[in-house]
C-alpha cells in the first residue's frame, strides 16, 4: 500500500528501556477501514508500540505518521485525529457516561452545537441509554469498557487504537466490542487492535502482525499466516499414559511434531499426503499403541503462533465451547 493511502504508518519503531528492547523495528501500515491485529503474548511490546503511536511515549528510532502527521514532530496534530482506548478503562469514575462524553467532546473542541447531538447519537448507537446518567463507578466491566471505547470515538477519529479492548470482559461484553469494531471499520476508521487472543485477531483483523519480545515474527492475513505452517496436521488421541509415552517416542523424529501430555494428544505435521498418515498410524498400531481417535485437520492460528514464537497464546476459554 502506498504511503498516501495509509492512515497509520509505523516504520522501524524502536523503544528501549535500559537493556530491554521493548519494540524492535516494528513496521506496518493501516489504511482506511482496515483493522490490523497486533498479536503477541504478554510483554511482547504491543502496548509500547501503541504508546509510541499515540504520542504517549517517545520514539527511540524509526518513525510514525498518523493521517500524514509525523508523530514525533507534530504530536499535537496527531492527537486531534486519534482515539485511544487502553487496557484500563480510561474514564472518569465520578462522572456519568454523558458527562464523560461531554468532557472529552469539549477537550476535542467539538463545536458546542454539535456536542449534544453527537453524544446522544453515540449513546443510542452503542446502547448506553440505560446507564448513561449514572456515575461510571457503578458500571459493570463491560459497560465501562464500552464507555471507554465510545469516549475514543467522540471526535470521529481517523485512526483508532484499541489496546487489548476485550481483556477481562465476559463473552457478552467481548461480542459487543467485536460488533463495535466491525461497525467502525465499515465506516472507514483505520483500527489498530492489540490482542493476546488469536481467535479475536482471526475474527476482526484484515491483517495480522505477530510480535514477540519486541520483534515482528510474522505478518500476513489470517489465511496467509495459517498457510505459513503450510501443511495438514494429524491429531492422534491415545487412551493411557503408557500409550502416550510410546506414541511420543515413535513420532519424535518427525519434524514439527508436538505433544500435549494432559490430553494425551500427539500432533504430527503431514507433508507427504495420505500415504504418510496411513504409514504413521500403521507404525503406531504395530508397536501396540492403542488409539482412541485421530483426525486430519487444517492448521489453526494457534499452531502458527506456536511455530513462530515457541509459546502458545492464551486460550479463549470463555468464548470457545
Amino acid at each position: 500500500m502506498s504511503r498516501m493511502n495509509s492512515v497509520i504508518e509505523a516504520a522501524g519503531l524502536t523503544k528501549r528501556f535500559g537493556d530491554v528492547v521493548a519494540a524492535d523495528g516494528v513496521t506496518f501500515s493501516i489504511g482506511r477501514g482496515q483493522v490490523l491485529g497486533l498479536l503477541g503474548p504478554n510483554g511482547a511490546g504491543k502496548t509500547t508500540a501503541v504508546k509510541m503511536l499515540t504520542t504517549l511515549l517517545s520514539i527511540d528510532s524509526g518513525s510514525a505518521r498518523i493521517a500524514g502527521f509525523d508523530v514525533a514532530r507534530d504530536p499535537e496534530s496527531v492527537r486531534q485525529v486519534i482515539g485511544l482506548a487502553g487496557q484500563a478503562a480510561a474514564v472518569d469514575e465520578k462522572l456519568t457516561a454523558r458527562e464523560n462524553l461531554e468532557l472529552f467532546a469539549r477537550l476535542y473542541k467539538l463545536p458546542r452545537n454539535r456536542r449534544r447531538s453527537r453524544i446522544n447519537e453515540l449513546i443510542d448507537r452503542f446502547d448506553m441509554g440505560s446507564f448513561a446518567d449514572r456515575p461510571a463507578a457503578t458500571y459493570s466491566g463491560g459497560q465501562r469498557r464500552r464507555l471507554d471505547i465510545v469516549a475514543a470515538l467522540v471526535a470521529e477519529p481517523l485512526a483508532l487504537f484499541l489496546d487489548e479492548p476485550t481483556t477481562g470482559l465476559d463473552p457478552r461484553g467481548r461480542a459487543e466490542v467485536w460488533d463495535s469494531v466491525r461497525a467502525l471499520a465499515a465506516a472507514g476508521t483505520a483500527i489498530l487492535l492489540t490482542t493476546q487472543y488469536l481467535d479475536e485477531a482471526d475474527r476482526l483483523a484484515d491483517h495480522i502482525v505477530v510480535i514477540d519480545q519486541g520483534r515482528t515474527v510474522a505478518t500476513g492475513t489470517p489465511v496467509e499466516l495459517k498457510a505459513e505452517v503450510g501443511r495438514d496436521i494429524l491429531e492422534i488421541h491415545v487412551p493411557t499414559d503408557g500409550d502416550f509415552a510410546r506414541a511420543r517416542e515413535l513420532t519424535a523424529a518427525v519434524p514439527g511434531a508436538s505433544v500435549n501430555a494432559d490430553r494425551r494428544q500427539v500432533d504430527v505435521p503431514i507433508t507427504e499426503g495420505a500415504e504418510q498418515s496411513l504409514r504413521l498410524l500403521r507404525t503406531l498400531e504395530e508397536s501396540g499403541v492403542r488409539i482412541d481417535d485421530f483426525q486430519l485437520r487444517q492448521p489453526t492460528l494457534d499452531d502458527t503462533f506456536l511455530a513462530l514464537t515457541g509459546s502458545p497464546t492464551k486460550p479463549l476459554e470463555e468464548v470457545q465451547p
Binding site: 493511502n5 495509509s6 501500515s29 482506511r32 493521517a67 502527521f69 492527537r79 486531534q80 484484515d206
Partner: peptide
C-alpha cells in the same frame, strides 16, 4: 500493505494551531 481492504486516500486533516495565541486560547478553554 495488503489487498484485503479498498485503499482510499485519508481525508486531509487540519494541523493543530500551535501559534502562541492558539495555545493560549486552547489553555483557557
Amino acid at each position: 500493505m495488503t489487498a484485503t481492504a479498498q485503499p482510499t486516500t485519508a481525508e486531509p486533516a487540519i494541523a493543530a494551531d500551535v501559534s502562541a495565541l492558539g495555545r493560549l486560547r486552547r489553555s483557557t478553554e
